[in-house]
């Protein structure tokens, strides 16, 4: 039996693979890496591409859209991203979240007017009610 190494491939919303394999290959940002048991600790980013594992001479493939690869002597962890990520896309998302917040802060002013209008309406209704009561009183 060949030496094996434990591999976990996980993404934020699911576990993709977990088990013992003979080797794992991934496309890191600096080029393709192949990890065999007792590899030195390593931490690297992954490019979008495939991750291959070697088990009993057979290969299995997974696709990851980027992520992080951590190597410990007996365990390899691949933290896969669930979506393609780029700095400018992240930036756009941040700007959108900010703009949304500003919009609801602006609406705060509108809400105030609404509250004021509500109070005025309540006052008017109270007046109407008292007028009605006075009328009824006269009718008796």
């Amino acid at each position: 039996m060949a030496m094996t190494i434990h591999v976990d491939i996980v993404s934020a919303d699911t576990s993709i693979y977990s088990g013992l394999v003979e080797a794992v290959f991934a496309s890191a940002v600096m080029g393709e890496v192949g990890i065999y048991p007792r590899h030195t600790p390593m931490l690297t980013r992954l490019k979008p591409g495939e991750v291959r594992i070697l088990l009993n001479g057979k290969q299995e493939q997974f696709y990851v859209s980027g992520g992080i690869l951590e190597v410990q002597p007996n365990i390899v962890t691949i933290l896969a991203d669930t979506a393609l990520r780029a700095d400018d896309i992240d930036e756009a998302a941040a700007l959108e979240a900010k703009a949304d917040a500003e919009r609801s802060l602006n609406e705060r002013g509108a809400k105030m007017e609404y509250a004021e209008a509500q109070i005025k309406l309540a006052e008017a209704m109270a007046q109407l009610r008292s007028i009605e009561r006075m009328r009824k009183g006269k009718g008796h």
Partner: peptide
Amino acid sequence: LTGQVVQLGDAPRPHELIGAVKVMLD
């Protein structure tokens, strides 16, 4: 209020939260 995310639904995806988190991390 520096950021907001609404209408995530029942099964939010991790990347839908990036904006809100990035505002704070920045």
